[in-house]
Design a protein around this nucleic acid. Sequence first.
DNA 1: CTGTTAGCGCTTTCAA
DNA 2: TTGAAAGCGCTAACAG
Lengths: 349, 349
Amino acid sequence: MSDRQHVTLEDVARTAEVSLATASRALNGTTRVRDDLRERVLSAAAELAYTPNAHAQALAGGSRRTVGVICHDISDPYFAAITRGVMRVADSHGLLVMLAGTFADPDRELACVSTLRAQRASAILLTGSAFEDRAWERRMAAELEPYRRGGGRVAVVTRHRSLKADTIAPDNRGGARALVEAMHRLGHRRFAVVTGPPQLTTVADRVAGFREGLAGLGVELSDRDVFAGSFDRDGGYDATRALLSAKHKATCVLAASDVMAVGAVSALRAAGLSVPEDVSVTGFDDVPLVRDFVPGLTTVSLPLERIGAEALELALDESGGAGRGRVRRLSGEVLVRESTAKPRRRRRG
Amino acid sequence: MSDRQHVTLEDVARTAEVSLATASRALNGTTRVRDDLRERVLSAAAELAYTPNAHAQALAGGSRRTVGVICHDISDPYFAAITRGVMRVADSHGLLVMLAGTFADPDRELACVSTLRAQRASAILLTGSAFEDRAWERRMAAELEPYRRGGGRVAVVTRHRSLKADTIAPDNRGGARALVEAMHRLGHRRFAVVTGPPQLTTVADRVAGFREGLAGLGVELSDRDVFAGSFDRDGGYDATRALLSAKHKATCVLAASDVMAVGAVSALRAAGLSVPEDVSVTGFDDVPLVRDFVPGLTTVSLPLERIGAEALELALDESGGAGRGRVRRLSGEVLVRESTAKPRRRRRG
DNA sequence: CTGTTAGCGCTTTCAA
DNA sequence: TTGAAAGCGCTAACAG
């Protein structure tokens, strides 16, 4: 009650003229409390604008009311959509989301786990790609292991090799394969890929899918057909400029994400080319706002919000082999829209 | 060390054969500790994969390592950009962001503050609009007041009447005024507004700005020129459909946000109209991805990331009248792009 | 510089 | 049912 001080349960108990234990029980509904006492406690709490100290609660062995979400960049609509899904589920469980952004920095990712561990988050969700890096994986595993031992739950989105965590696995590879098959059907034979850093498993899987699908159709995708930039809009723009300077003759540019595709289209336009008349462009993800682009972006649609929601549900679900690498696969759907068309100079298969 | 248990500072101290206090000091660097002892503590901590229990730390009067951000919907690029700015600053202060989404529900907003209060967040940032509702304001103030008394810091983005909190105030009104003036200069005389719920202060301010600016130019904006929907893409779409069914003869549609503008453009297109040939459309915010839309959206550019960053900085800054309603104004800039053109049937002023 | 000790605010036995 | 009391893990006096 004094200045710059919190109202504590003790204040409430005193005001209500009951013991601490009774006040606690009345507030939490753990045990039956005589009605009149409960009333007194409740009104005292309201009167004093009491809010329990979550730290004290957590420390006393009570609740773990938070979950941690680690993403690369919340302003990327891919992560924003996933996080939204997480938040919906968190909300329905009365959990608060602690959000950490790593800006795709492996070390920061590790540091975030450590912080979330310190916060005793009830679950940690790794929503960004893993990094294809043995040493990193080892360190991450070392960080996660004691967290789990302490009762923490972990779920990851996309493949995290050797982390044996519960996983929500969007079918990047299969989606990529299906996409190139559709483009091949449309008549395309010369492709280029505009992509992010290959160490990201998401990127690696998608590119592998492109390559596989094309190989199955007798089209080879060499390293000279792959242009990498940062995994964002500007990366798409830059990689496409590189492609243009290399005078690549692709009739179809495969971007590793919708956001990169947006950059790609802009770069193409800036160079005086039109989409899809001169070049076809595809994306990946089907993120919300991009759906309204004109021309509509051909892409692989992923249920982003659901991915986030299921990641948290999976982490929270204690049943069946919990924590021991359960994998839930989610497939994508190829959406052919107006950013792709038959290539100008068509050749028969 | 036993199963399903956390490694505590005591374990570390025991392993390092020092006292609890020494272990604490070695880890936190609060006081000088003999080098060899510190070494022992550090290596014991590393060996045991020790992570301090943030709850215990907070409870013991140590750190407050988190800040709370309350937004309406993280998948809205407006909030995503602001939150990104917040996270950047949080990161540089070693703070973790606790993110709460209210989906523009006033009650949930209140509940979020309460939760964040319980978590003893060092600051709470209200990034969504306030609701123009006396009762709500009172309740919000009642929730915030004890939080502040306990040393909590509060900052809000956009006007929150009677909350007398530190405020980052983007100049919605002035920006809106400047925007309509630019459109008037282009030759437009008949306007319609596609907007969100008028209870949101952001919406109210922008519409007021439109109205004011137009009035100054001798153009009246009546209630029949204003079409409201939800404050998102679909709201923009729906409101525009309503506008269309009402056979409104606007030559320029003023959307209350970029995201709504995207919906508006789509609705117009679906009705067979082209932008800007048949109708001009403007947005507000200049959110990232929309910058790549074609036609480029005429809008008022707001420094969203900076708004988020400054909100947290302001909250954290204890100097000068801290907490007592300091206001930092940020102005927007009118960006005329290709979604607006001279109206078909031009008339002289 | 190091160790001992008293809390921080709450939950939860254990008795009454 | 209710109350007293023992921690949860850590920090910060306070002595040594």
